[in-house]
Simulated assay, not measured.
Amino acid sequence: MKRLLPYLMIAAGASLWGIIAVFVKELADYGFAAMEIVAIRVIYAALFLLTIGLLKYRKQMKLKQALDIRLFIGTGILSVVFFNYCYFTTISQMNISIAVILLYTSPAFVTVLSLIFLKEKLNINKILAVLGTIIGCILIAGVSAGDSNITLLGILTGLGSGLGYALYTIFGKFALKKYQPFTITLYTFIVAALFLLPITQLWQKLDLLMNTNVLLYSIGLGFIPTVLAYFIYTWGLEKIEGSKAAVIATVEPVVATLLGVMLYGERLGLIQIAGAFLIFCSVIIVNITFRKKGVKRVEQKIS
């Protein structure tokens, strides 16, 4: 059981990411726009992380240089804010199932961006993964032209969420050269919160934010699929290879898809399922590299 526990924790963390749409849809029903929901998520997450940091990780709360804040502008604004805005917009435009499938185009974006910025080499697996992702997206978008649940804006923001998700990996790799994962996560959400608070002016909706249901959904959004999911995933990540964790984490779109089917009555057509299957396979393929003496997974997911 002890050997299985890290794998179960990875799956549990990814599953918690998969239920994020519940909180997003509920807050949207109360009249919050996508960017306001992003602000709610990062503000509550920042508060939770600050509390945890003060109690347990004080040494990791210090920045080595003031200029390092620019690293967290990358992870916080260019990635987390952009990714969440696109993802939440996609959820409001289309089925949860399609939204999370498009989100999982991120490994293809990581492959391309790593080639450009990190000078990582391409191999046959990565090329196949990118091609599989592209074909999968074409199948999902192309056959849905007459589907009222599919919109051009939704497709574009869905791909944008994949790009934003990928950017966290790129900026995160640079930040990891100097800081621990907790430090990166803490300042990512602090920067994102400070950036969004004046833009969204959430204080103008203070009465609504104090509504009992809204408060519970807001706290839940900031804690359950954000802070709690991060800590569970990270605990498991410390015990097993990051590449294995990345493959196990593909349970996230499965959970999100089942959630859409069971709670919201969503359905996918056969060709859309084929497109989703190609994207899921691409996520797994990009984490596999073949060697003469077997198979070894080498990519690591930064979440």
Rank of each mutant, 00 (worst) to 15 (best):
S161Y: 05
G154C: 10
G172A: 07
V143F: 15
G154R: 05
I199A: 10
S218F: 06
C137L: 13
W203R: 06
L221H: 05
L186Q: 00
F223R: 03
L153G: 08
T133E: 10
P225Y: 11
T151K: 04
I155R: 02
V143T: 15
G160M: 08
I219A: 13
L159K: 01
A145Y: 13
I219F: 15
I170V: 09
L216G: 02
T151G: 07
V191M: 04
L152V: 14
L131G: 10
S161E: 06
A141E: 05
A141G: 09
F195Y: 11
F189M: 11
L208V: 14
L153V: 14
L139C: 12
G222Y: 02
G136M: 11
L194A: 13
T226W: 00
G158E: 04
L163V: 08
P225G: 12
T151P: 02
Y230G: 03
K177M: 12
S148A: 15
G160Q: 03
G236T: 09
I155M: 08
I134M: 10
I134D: 06
I138M: 12
L216D: 00
T226D: 00
Y187S: 08
K178Q: 11
F171M: 05
G146I: 11
S144G: 14
C137G: 11
I232T: 12
K173L: 13
D147R: 12
V214Y: 06
Y187E: 07
F174E: 08
V191G: 01
G162V: 07
T234F: 15
T169C: 04
I190W: 01
C137T: 15
G146F: 06
L202R: 00
P181I: 11
Y168G: 10
A145D: 03
V191F: 03
M210H: 10
G236L: 09
W203P: 00
I134H: 04
Y165M: 11
I184S: 01
L186F: 09
I150R: 00
A145N: 09
L139A: 11
A166P: 05
I170C: 02
L163W: 00
C137Q: 03
Y179C: 10
P198K: 06
G172W: 04
I138W: 07
K173P: 03
G142D: 07
L152E: 05
T157Q: 02
V214N: 03
I155N: 02
T157A: 09
L206H: 10
L153N: 10
L206P: 01
F189T: 12
Q204Y: 13
I219C: 13
I184R: 00
A141R: 02
T200A: 12
G162Q: 04
L208Q: 10
G220H: 03
K177A: 14
I224W: 01
G222A: 09
M210D: 08
P181F: 09
G162F: 04
C137E: 06
L153P: 00
T212H: 13
L206C: 06
I135H: 02
L159G: 02
P225F: 12
G146Y: 06
T188S: 12
T133G: 11
T212I: 14
